[in-house]
């Protein structure tokens, strides 16, 4: 399939089941809500090394938050339920509890309930109090700037991680500019996050390594500097490849984000250096979710 000169490979992105939650962080100003959310979702690009994948989903107006203050919605994804609980609690405790004027709320219903402030409350050393509002329990933890308000639990739902797009471009600058535009558009899609820095990955990986201690290593088939010495997927004109990884709550959410991404790449076109769009997969052996690029565009 070719759109605006951009070839879309007959391949698929392979994704796998994850557990996810969403939280809403509010603060006196949007900047301080962002500061807390940025810290909470920091160092969370890949479960391989970070324990979870997390990112800011969107900014929320005061009218969209539980306490009527500016807020940020953030999502965390992990491979298992236990690690989600641990990551959420650690990150909430170190990054949101500590952030001035912040409050923390559940951002998702359904699934099973996991602790949010349920254990954080003990920071209050016995001075913490709770309040049940609309059948939800909130903890009020006295802190030096006043009071940290946190909902007792949040929802844990089944989700999908590892949706991805590879953009193959004539130059590094072309690839980066195209990715920036695509990320901007894809982040408008609800229920997804792009967990890597700026939403873009330059070090896509393959499973395994020549070094037994490593579970993943550089995706040499897509490394432009190795075109002549490895079994490359790249044609001669490709000088740079970048990837956008997408975690989402449902298949439909990821498909929608991928379609938006592909459409953005195609709108930039081959004349501006975007030559091919591909996706990362492991031959269908790793994950049960297969997002076929051409099918997505035909939907």
């Amino acid at each position: 399939m070719i759109i605006n000169g951009v070839m879309i490979d007959h391949t698929f992105a392979e994704a796998f089941p994850m557990k996810a939650t969403r939280v809403i962080i509010t603060a006196q100003t949007e900047q301080w809500a962002f500061n807390a959310a940025k810290s909470m979702t920091g160092f969370a690009t890949s479960v391989i090394g970070c324990g979870c994948e997390a990112d800011i989903e969107c900014f929320l107006k005061p009218s969209e938050t539980p306490d009527g203050r500016p807020g940020v919605s953030a999502m965390l994804f992990t491979m298992g339920a236990k690690s989600l609980v641990k990551q959420l609690e650690t990150r909430a405790g170190q990054s949101v509890l500590t952030s001035p004027t912040s409050a923390l709320f559940s951002g998702i219903d359904g699934g099973i309930r996991i602790p949010l402030g349920k254990n954080l409350r003990y920071f209050g050393d016995g001075f913490q109090t709770s309040k049940v509002i609309n059948d939800n329990r909130y903890w009020r933890i006295p802190v030096m700037d006043g009071e940290f308000l946190v909902e007792e639990t949040t929802g844990q739902v089944n989700a999908i991680g590892g949706g991805n797009l590879l953009i193959l471009a004539e130059s590094e600058a072309d690839a980066l500019e195209a990715c920036e535009k695509a990320v901007l558009e894809m982040r408008k899609v609800a229920n997804i996050i792009l967990p890597f820095p700026g939403g873009v990955v330059r070090s896509g990986s393959k499973v395994g390594s020549k070094y037994p201690a490593l579970t993943a290593s550089t995706n040499d088939a897509f490394c432009p500097t190795l075109k002549g010495i490895t079994k490359s997927e790249l044609s001669p004109e490709i000088e740079s490849v970048m990837e956008i990884v997408i975690d989402g709550l449902t298949e439909a959410d990821i498909k929608k984000a991928m379609k938006v991404g592909i459409e953005t790449f195609c709108s930039i076109g081959a004349y501006n250096g975007v030559k091919r769009i591909s996706a990362g997969n492991y031959g269908g052996k790793l994950g049960p979710y297969h997002f076929h690029l051409q099918e997505i565009m035909n939907d």
Partner: peptide, 13 residues
Amino acid sequence: THTFSFLPMVFDA
């Protein structure tokens, strides 16, 4: 004297 963010939630409820 303090400003509490839970109060608007109570009033909203």
